[in-house]
């Protein structure tokens, strides 16, 4: 809220409801939010940019969060 250049946060979750709720809250708080539905999308984004923070769902259909984190 004090930063002029808001931090970029990557939210990785397969549940659309959670993705949206989180992004709404975080945008409300003034962060830039990038959404990824699955591990593949998250990796694709990671190739281009490095987000300040990644919110990772541990339990996802294709790849679990811990694996993606590594």
């Amino acid at each position: 809220m004090t930063t002029t250049q808001p931090c970029e946060i990557l939210i990785v979750d397969d549940e659309a409801g959670i993705r949206e709720l989180l992004s709404e809250i975080l945008i409300d708080e003034g962060y830039r939010v990038v959404l990824a539905e699955n591990a593949r999308e998250a990796r694709a984004y990671r190739q281009k940019q490095e987000p300040a923070l990644v919110l990772l769902d541990i339990w996802m259909p294709d790849t679990d969060g811990v694996t993606l984190l590594r």
């Binding site: 409801g17 709720l21 339990w59």
Partner: peptide, 17 residues
């Protein structure tokens, strides 16, 4: 555990928010 616990977090988050 998976199906119920997952929505609980958003519910709780939303309520608190």
């Amino acid at each position: 555990a998976h199906e119920i616990k997952n929505p609980l977090t958003p519910i709780q988050l939303s309520a608190e928010r």
